[in-house]
Amino acid sequence: MTIKELVEVLDAEVLTPELSLDLEVKGGYVSDLLSDVMAHAKEGDLWITLQTHLNIVAVASLKSVSGIVVVNNRRPGAETLKKAVEEGIPILTTPHTSFEIAGRLYQFLNAEKV
């Protein structure tokens, strides 16, 4: 499943239109603690978080996650988005909570496996 296929499911808005959304999403990771993401997120995870500051891009890039979904209608600032484009990390925003987005993504990924 690619990020492109998930945009609608997650009611998401793409904040980095410059970037391709054909990256494959292999799993999900929910965390608002950067140290936790650094320690445990896996390559290809879609990272679901409330955090919007600049450092999320560096962490996402280091861990090679497929993209970031920022929840609860949060919007990262221009600086974060610029860095995301440079690093090739798509950022999406959604009005839903982490729980809701994790739930929807979990169901979709499971349905795909069957």
Binding site: Y29, H96, T97
Partner: peptide
Amino acid sequence: FSMFTACGILYERGLRCC
């Protein structure tokens, strides 16, 4: 489970967020 999986399981069983 990770937070992602824990949320996924509970969501699948019908629990919803506040």
